[in-house]
Design a protein around this nucleic acid. Structure first.
Lengths: 188, 188
DNA sequence: CTAAGATACGGAGGGCCCCGCCACTTAGCA
DNA sequence: TGCTAAGTGGCGGGGCCCTCCGTATCTTAG
């Protein structure tokens, strides 16, 4: 009694794999028709499995996002709260900067695709997973007052978006993250 | 002996005005054909005056960008170097967050439109204008070592991009800027 | 004032893409 | 094995970007 037919699941998986390649090659605005073509299915099938481009992006990156969430949970038991948070943010940034299209997926959507009840899933999950780390760091007095996990996800998203162009996005993004964490104008 | 015919200049100005409205209404990826339609010209005329979408964005925002550059120059004679830099960055951020499409224009372009010899004009001009402020602040020891004006423009661009979705982008962007300047994990 | 030349214009056509519709195929159950 | 509904794919409409080319308009010289 599968909720889905077997071939439907096959197509779903196939589309996901192809979409990942296409997005890696052409960015977040890869052609849905091209994805359908490569996957050997009709363009309607793509839309059937993923009503939005956003839904496709979410699905493609979900696995990795969950890995990052798991990483956050693992770091929960680390000795130094500040180091734990920092390491997690570095991991998120590195993955975001090295994975084409992810930054856009993290970007909150204004407009049409946002109406689907569930805001922006990837960003929300990440923020939720990071929340304990932030809280613990805040209790230790390591993090500036008023900072939420959501804020941090927003900052990391911005950094990855703004460094996408760079010859070495990962290094550049990491540098920007360092700046942001330590403060550009620290004193005063 | 005008370098351009009078009607061409008229169309240019008209297109610029219409483009500004359209971009404000629909974001950086407003339809060029729609702009042509509203301006009452053929779509080819748009492309004749602005070969790229990027060129159009640059032209639309150039005036304001130059105002920000002028502001930077004015601040050069302010007493406190740190305050001067901070105020300028606040001004840039505020304008970026309140002007739809500007963040994208500041974003460095990878790919086709970047081949036009002149990299990304808006971001470059801003960075050049901010350079003296950064240098002066660095001499005063107010700014973290290794930080360039380009870095700051990149950070501000990222912040505005990542806060575009927010109900109150200006306030949110300003808050993020504050975080970034003071440092999220200041100590250590 | 007029006519020639250069300059700028705009519409048509091709290519690509997103989207919705509908007749058909095929998997899963009895 | 046959039935049913889930799933599929192709087609047509609409939009956008882009290029080409005949034509209208501005400018300058006579």
């Amino acid at each position: 009694m599968p909720a889905q037919r077997a071939d439907a699941r096959r197509n779903h998986a196939r589309l996901l794999a192809v979409a990942e390649e296409e997005i890696a090659a052409h960015g977040a605005d890869a052609s849905l028709e091209q994805i359908a073509r490569v996957a050997g299915v009709g363009s309607a099938t793509v839309r059937r499995h993923f009503p939005n481009r956003r839904a496709l992006l979410d699905a493609v990156f979900r696995g990795r996002i969950e890995a990052l969430c798991a990483h956050a949970r693992d770091l929960g038991s680390t000795a130094d709260a500040r180091t734990a948070l920092l390491e997690w943010l570095r991991a998120v940034t590195e993955y975001g900067a090295s994975t084409r299209g992810l930054a856009v997926a993290l970007l909150r959507d204004t407009g049409a695709s946002a109406d689907a009840e569930h805001g922006n899933t990837c960003a929300n999950e990440l923020a939720a997973a990071g929340e304990p780390l932030v809280e613990r760091a805040a209790e230790a007095g390591a993090v500036a007052p008023g900072v939420t996990a959501e804020d941090l996800v927003t900052l990391v998203t911005g950094i990855t978006l703004a460094t996408e162009h760079h010859p070495d996005p990962v290094a550049e993004a990491d540098r920007m993250l360092g700046l942001t964490m330590a403060g550009v104008l620290p004193q005063g």
